[in-house]
């Protein structure tokens, strides 16, 4: 399908609209980004670097990567499994389950954190049991991971479901009649067909997992050097009026976001043909 190339705006209203869009974007996206950089380097490069390499900051970076490193693969596996179920089988309450899958999108992240405290906290349902067995979930790594998983649960599945719905089961059925085992069908047919959507979903999921604040804030306990992820670390520094430290850490998060964006754009640009071919087919 050929799409008519948009033309340059000529009429007055079109120009006004364009100017408004550009100004607005500059105001709400570009300005804060520039501000982050300006504040971070306000006292020069040296203070910037030293606030990044201080032990608490490094530990926050490590923890953020660790949490994302656990949460994202689990959500990728869940996403594939869920998309497979939703697009390959019919079962009762499917519509309801699909809506529930979207809950993390619509619910406030604070609630996604609090539910875990209510379940696993000292006074929660399983609090006594966990204490008796000396298992720490809240105010520890497991809590951070499950809170992050809940918040980022739908990202991969939501990328895959429309694509797999669109592609249908014909190719998989054909593979079976040609003698392929379930394993072969998945790795030779299903997975290659969804690989770019999967990569895309994983990227979005990663970005969200590393930037998550609300849910993580509730279960973290803010123990410096131990349970502070990068976003929480920034908040602590900011509250202590260490603006250079806060903004330096913020540049890291913003940097991660930019890297994600670049990768996403590269993916879209490099495989535009293939993605389009998929849709045409």
């Amino acid at each position: 399908m050929k799409v008519r190339a948009p033309e340059a705006p000529k009429s007055f209203p079109a120009l006004v609209l364009l100017a408004f869009a550009v100004l607005w974007m500059a105001l709400v996206i570009l300005l804060p980004l520039v501000n982050v950089l300006a504040e971070a380097f306000k006292q020069g490069v040296q203070p910037y670097l030293s606030s990044i390499v201080q032990p608490d900051a490094l530990s926050a970076i490590r923890l953020t990567l660790l949490v994302a490193g656990i949460a994202v693969p689990l959500n990728a596996v869940f996403g594939i499994a869920a998309a497979w179920c939703f697009t390959r089988f019919d079962f009762p309450l499917k519509g309801l389950l699909l809506s529930i899958l979207d809950l993390p999108f619509t619910i406030s992240p604070v609630i996604s954190g609090i539910v875990w405290v209510l379940l696993f906290g000292a006074h929660g349902w399983f609090g006594a049991f966990l204490q008796a067995h000396d298992i720490k979930i809240i105010y520890a790594l497991p809590g951070l991971v499950i809170a992050t998983i809940l918040v980022t649960l739908p990202f991969v599945a939501r990328e895959l479901i429309p694509l797999m719905q669109d592609q249908g089961t014909d190719e998989e059925v054909a593979a079976v009649t040609l003698g392929a085992s379930g394993w072969d069908v998945f790795f030779r047919v299903t997975l290659p067909n969804i690989k770019w959507a999967l990569t895309y979903g994983v990227l979005l999921c990663t970005a969200r997992a590393m930037g998550e604040f609300g849910a993580v804030s509730v279960v973290s306990g803010h123990i410096r050097g131990l349970t502070n992820t990068l976003p929480l670390h920034i908040e602590v520094l900011y509250n202590e009026y260490d603006s250079v430290g806060a903004f330096a850490a913020a540049t890291l998060l913003a940097g991660l976001a930019l890297v994600t964006l670049v990768l996403k754009s590269l993916l879209e640009w490099r495989f535009a043909d293939e993605l389009a071919a998929h849709r045409r087919h």
Partner: peptide, 19 residues
């Protein structure tokens, strides 16, 4: 279906698009 060794040509052809 896997063990029947029946060659099936689908109405949609169902060719593997990435191959």
């Amino acid at each position: 279906a896997r063990d029947r060794r029946i060659g099936m040509v689908f109405q949609s052809y169902a060719l593997f698009r990435h191959m």
